[in-house]
Simulated assay, not measured.
Amino acid sequence: MPLSRPIALSCGEPAGIGPDLALSLAQQDRDYPLVLLGDRSVLAERADALGLTVQLHAWEDGDTAREAGHLSFLHIPVHSPVRAGHLDPVNAAHVIRLLEIGCDGCLGGRFAALVTAPLHKGVINEAGRSFSGHTEFLAERSGAAQPVMMLACPGLRVALATTHLPLRQVADAISPKGLESVIRVLHADLRRLFAIDNPRILVCGLNPHAGEGGHLGHEEGEIIAPLLERLRREGMQLNGPLPADTLFTPKVLEQGDAVLAMFHDQGLPVLKHKGFGKAVNLTLGLPIIRTSVDHGTALDLAGSGRADAGSLQAAIGLAVELAENQPEIPS
């Protein structure tokens, strides 16, 4: 059913392309309600730099602007003047505040979903706050026990058993308990969000050739395979552990609804090669709907007019689709 509550769009790092992408949405009419979370002066100055005529309307609760040339926004001030392309750690608190307001608004029923423009993890950590990514932050904020990061593009969905870890820590992070939690979240949200009644999940091995029968690693035989067999007995359709170098081929992929990769750079390079600019980052296992772009802050493009809004449009489109599939929260 059509949305009665707006999609919240966090504009992300103010010196990056987040404001540019947000403003690009004003170039055409929208059939969904949208509220930008950002600083009014940053948005106005960036619109001027891009040569865009955009009327910004302060939003509290109620109707949102949907016609071309107009955008609704919730003013969340920066702490230091912003120059496109130039990071300032002082504004890290602003970026965090965008996420807090967006997440809390979804939890409280004010927003239907949260879409996040890119932020810069390095400058947030430089400002003295330990921050490993949107996924982990939103899980902690919303009280989610097991967030799962998924990227999706036309024809491919890839979820991750581990997220932003140094490679030398990945093997130690693959445990029966943790992997089972990830698989259960992935299976449940493929059903709940994507309406796939009996999802087929292709599971990567951790090591080359999925361990080569124990000659190239023991995690497949000791952890992954026994767990998959146990979950199959519950009725889950799980294929694996499969060698990652042959799993990502058309004949294998057509046998699954999603891929579970063991670590970040095992699955995401393939997905981004296939769908960069059209891919969406989706956090599973949260009590809210959260989608994001598949790219970073692109500081060199900020304010230039050369930023591609394709991934943001795809992220909003998926957020709207998933939100429309959920039951309305009673007023």
Rank of each mutant, 00 (worst) to 15 (best):
C106P: 03
L98D: 01
R200C: 07
V54A: 14
L271F: 09
V170K: 12
D189I: 10
G285V: 01
I223P: 00
V35G: 02
A152H: 11
A261P: 01
R46Q: 13
K251M: 13
G18I: 01
I196A: 07
L99G: 10
S304K: 05
A113S: 06
L21F: 07
R129Y: 07
A261G: 05
G122C: 07
S175V: 03
E45G: 06
D172V: 05
L282T: 11
T249R: 15
G240S: 03
A127Q: 07
V252A: 15
H264A: 06
I17Q: 04
T162P: 14
L56W: 13
G205D: 06
N325D: 12
I7F: 01
L271G: 06
S331D: 04
A22F: 01
R30A: 15
L98K: 05
G109F: 08
V185M: 03
A92H: 01
A65T: 02
P77F: 04
F73N: 04
I289M: 08
H79N: 10
S311R: 03
L37Q: 02
S80D: 13
W59C: 02
D20R: 11
H70R: 06
P226L: 07
R233N: 05
A84C: 12
H86R: 12
N125G: 14
A195F: 09
D39C: 14
G221S: 11
P33L: 05
W59D: 03
A68S: 08
V148I: 07
H120F: 06
D300N: 05
H295N: 10
C153I: 03
A302F: 10
V54G: 15
L286E: 03
A210L: 05
H75C: 01
D61N: 10
E136R: 10
A195E: 14
E67Y: 02
V158M: 01
P330A: 13
S311H: 06
E100L: 04
G128E: 08
L74S: 00
F263H: 15
V320N: 10
S142L: 11
A139I: 12
R141K: 15
E328L: 15
A152I: 09
G133K: 14
A315P: 15
S24A: 15
H209V: 08
R232K: 14
G205R: 07
G275C: 12
R191G: 13
L56P: 02
P330D: 12
R306E: 06
V182T: 12
G305K: 00
G38W: 09
A139P: 12
I329W: 15
D172S: 15
H264I: 01
A15M: 03
E229K: 14
R110F: 03
G69E: 00
A195K: 08
A93Y: 02
S181G: 13
M236A: 05
G305W: 04
S142G: 11
V95A: 04
H75W: 09
A44N: 08
D257S: 05
L190H: 01
L253N: 12
P118R: 02
L238V: 12
A171F: 00
L138E: 09
H75T: 01
E222T: 10
R168I: 02
P208S: 03
V170E: 13
P226V: 11
T163M: 00
A210Q: 08
I329S: 14
H134F: 14
D189R: 08
I174F: 14
C204K: 04
V158L: 03
V42A: 00
